[in-house]
């Protein structure tokens, strides 16, 4: 009897405890990244390989979604602007929406699904099949070789992919505008760039860096801490995606607050 209540109590307590243990271990993981990233050996080859992998993996999907987002958003915005006879503002409106919010967000969410899950699964399966231990006993620092290279690669590649998505989305928008308003490509892009400020572009890129870092580090963390068995690997991949997407939205919100602060200066 007494034992029963004790285990019941510890059930709830254990969950709270586990939450904080998880938080602490995530913190230690991030801290370890920042401790190790500065010192050699630098795994340059692995970094390049990962950059290529990330680009190659997400390019087709990002091209498609970017273009569709551009077309659809333009099409849906037209009626509201048409009410004020202001459809000529379409390029400027789309430009701001794409660069400030949709480009980074769409890219990061897709990359969280594609890149985050594949990092989580790859590192997770290396963990459970003792490949990480094998690296360690052959005197290679697996954290540097696997984690640092992947986190840096995704931090670097997501902004690159965001620029690409921005471009594709704007092309989608142009495609739609060109059909309806007969605007030429050069006029369209002059209007697009006129609408943008320096702050828009830098904040968009900085935000993308943060998204990239998040996707990489969450994938690695989940993989590195995955539990034994193939089930553990699946769970690592899955929770990497969920966690990364959740954090991306939180970061988007924070970025909005911060840029608004700078805009008012």
């Amino acid at each position: 009897m007494a034992e029963n209540t004790a285990t019941h109590k510890s059930g709830l307590r254990r969950r709270v405890e586990n939450f904080f243990i998880g938080l602490a271990s995530a913190y230690r993981f991030v801290e370890r990244f920042f401790r190790e990233v500065w010192f050699p050996p630098y795994e340059f080859k692995e970094f390049i390989r990962q950059c290529y992998q990330i680009g190659y993996n997400s390019l087709p999907l990002i091209s498609l979604t970017g273009f569709i987002v551009g077309v659809v958003f333009t099409n849906q915005s037209r009626p509201s602007l048409a009410e004020f006879g202001a459809t000529s503002w379409l390029p400027a409106l789309i430009s701001i929406a794409v660069i400030r919010a949709m480009g980074p967000l769409v890219t990061a969410l897709i990359a969280a699904g594609k890149v985050g899950s594949s990092i989580g699964a790859e590192i997770g399966s290396m963990k459970v099949t003792e490949q990480i231990d094998a690296m360690e006993v052959s005197a290679t620092n697996p954290f540097k070789f696997l984690v640092v290279s992947r986190v840096l690669a995704s931090t670097f590649m997501i902004p690159v992919l965001v620029m690409y998505t921005d471009f594709v989305a704007l092309m989608g928008a142009f495609f739609n505008v060109n059909q309806h308003e007969l605007v030429s490509l050069s006029t369209f892009f002059v209007q697009v760039f006129d609408a943008l400020s320096f702050l828009d572009i830098t904040s968009s890129l900085l935000k993308s860096l943060v998204f990239g870092f998040t996707i990489g580090i969450v994938g690695c963390y989940k993989g590195y801490n995955s539990t034994k068995g193939t089930e553990g690997v699946g769970k690592a991949a899955n929770s990497a995606v969920v966690m990364a997407m959740f954090l991306i939205f939180i970061e988007e919100l924070l970025a909005l607050q911060i840029t608004n602060f700078f805009r008012q200066l």
Binding site: M126, T129, E130, Q131, D133, A134, M135, E136, V137, A139
Partner: peptide, 20 residues
């Protein structure tokens, strides 16, 4: 430790070959 590890061969239960 890394120097020492080079003198020890460790054959893992699941072979631990690098898949990639």
């Amino acid at each position: 430790l890394n120097q020492l590890r080079l003198r020890i061969g460790f054959s893992f239960q699941a072979s631990a070959l690098y898949d990639s």
